[in-house]
Amino acid sequence: MKMKVSRKAIENIIKQHIPEQELAEVKPYDKGHINEMLEIRLKKSRKPLILRIYNEPWKAKKESFVYRCIKSQLDIPVPEILASDDSGEIIPKAYMLMSKIDGMAIDKNYRKYRKKPIFRKAGEILARLHSVKFHHFGWLMDNEIKPAFRKWRDFAWHDLLTKMYNISSLKEIRKMIPRIEEKIGEYSFLLDIKETPCLLHKDYHCPHILTKKSRIAGIIDVEWAIAGHNENDFIKMELWAFSRMKNLRKPFFDGYRKYGHISREYEQRIKMYELWHWISMVNISKETKNREWLEHNIRALRKFLK
């Protein structure tokens, strides 16, 4: 995979933040649709680093803030942040330099060892993440909630309307709007909740839960974190893990309930959160101009609406 940032630019980053070191090797990761991620090896160190180059400058401060928030409040393994910069002075884009957590994605771990308790531990860790509380609901931008809402329902409507406006230029979506409105009307009462806003990972699924044999080695990729309703954080595991590994759903939620609460309405509410999820996925794939990914998400939304 070809790098979008030059080797010289990476050398400048290392010189700025770790002047005693020299760049030895750079390996781009062939994953992700949005930000560039590189594995960095230095001449005087055996420990590789991760360099993330962001498509939007606010993400560098935001992800750095979330990792440090987790590290300061919880005993959960996350990367150590070595540097974060959005000034554009070192390289034109915002970036973050951090330690690399070695580990195997949790689904690959299960296929290798066939041990269900690792999913119970993943549920426990998510519940502990949700123990970080906020005063308002909303997007985490840099190190603040912006815009901030006192009610989850109000934030949900703001987010949905913003994304629906963005994707309404797509003719495939315009045809679905009456059905989308019907479904939102059917499920919207489930957005009236009493829970306190908490830290949501918002991308909590197998590739971002790293493991070593029987333990969780690290939680990564908190770029999309928000202050929200805890049950909204289950949707990606539901869709991308438990849809193909149904036997692991119970241990995951058993683990979650050790530290967290799941309401009686969750099995209904999940439909609202799935609709919201696919609208969000269409929006982000449109913004990144990835036509193949966009078409996949439009098909998934259409299938959900049937």
Rank of each mutant, 00 (worst) to 15 (best):
199 L>V: 06
199 L>D: 05
199 L>Q: 06
201 H>Q: 05
201 H>W: 06
202 K>L: 12
202 K>R: 15
202 K>I: 13
202 K>A: 13
203 D>T: 03
203 D>Y: 02
203 D>Q: 02
204 Y>W: 03
204 Y>H: 03
204 Y>K: 01
205 H>Q: 11
205 H>L: 10
206 C>A: 14
206 C>P: 12
206 C>G: 12
206 C>V: 10
206 C>L: 10
207 P>Q: 05
207 P>W: 06
208 H>D: 14
208 H>M: 10
209 I>C: 12
210 L>V: 01
210 L>P: 03
210 L>G: 06
210 L>M: 02
210 L>E: 04
210 L>N: 06
210 L>R: 02
210 L>C: 04
210 L>W: 02
211 T>I: 05
211 T>C: 11
212 K>N: 14
212 K>M: 11
213 K>Y: 10
213 K>P: 03
214 S>G: 08
214 S>T: 14
214 S>N: 14
214 S>Y: 08
215 R>C: 07
216 I>V: 11
216 I>C: 00
216 I>A: 01
218 G>Q: 05
218 G>Y: 00
218 G>V: 08
218 G>M: 03
218 G>F: 00
219 I>H: 07
219 I>D: 09
220 I>S: 10
220 I>C: 10
220 I>F: 02
221 D>G: 04
221 D>N: 07
222 V>D: 09
223 E>F: 09
223 E>Y: 07
224 W>E: 15
224 W>H: 15
225 A>F: 06
225 A>V: 10
226 I>K: 15
226 I>E: 15
226 I>A: 13
227 A>L: 02
227 A>T: 02
227 A>Y: 00
227 A>R: 00
228 G>C: 03
228 G>S: 01
228 G>T: 00
228 G>K: 00
228 G>A: 01
229 H>K: 10
229 H>I: 11
230 N>Q: 14
231 E>V: 05
231 E>Q: 07
232 N>Q: 13
232 N>S: 11
232 N>P: 00
234 F>E: 04
235 I>V: 15
235 I>D: 11
236 K>A: 12
237 M>T: 10
237 M>S: 13
237 M>L: 15
237 M>I: 07
237 M>P: 04
237 M>Y: 08
238 E>S: 09
239 L>D: 15
239 L>T: 12
239 L>H: 11
239 L>R: 14
240 W>F: 13
242 F>W: 06
242 F>M: 03
242 F>Q: 06
243 S>F: 04
243 S>W: 06
243 S>V: 07
243 S>T: 13
244 R>C: 07
244 R>L: 09
244 R>E: 12
245 M>F: 08
245 M>C: 03
245 M>P: 04
246 K>T: 10
246 K>G: 13
246 K>Y: 06
247 N>G: 12
247 N>W: 00
248 L>K: 05
248 L>I: 07
249 R>T: 05
249 R>C: 08
250 K>Y: 00
250 K>N: 10
251 P>C: 00
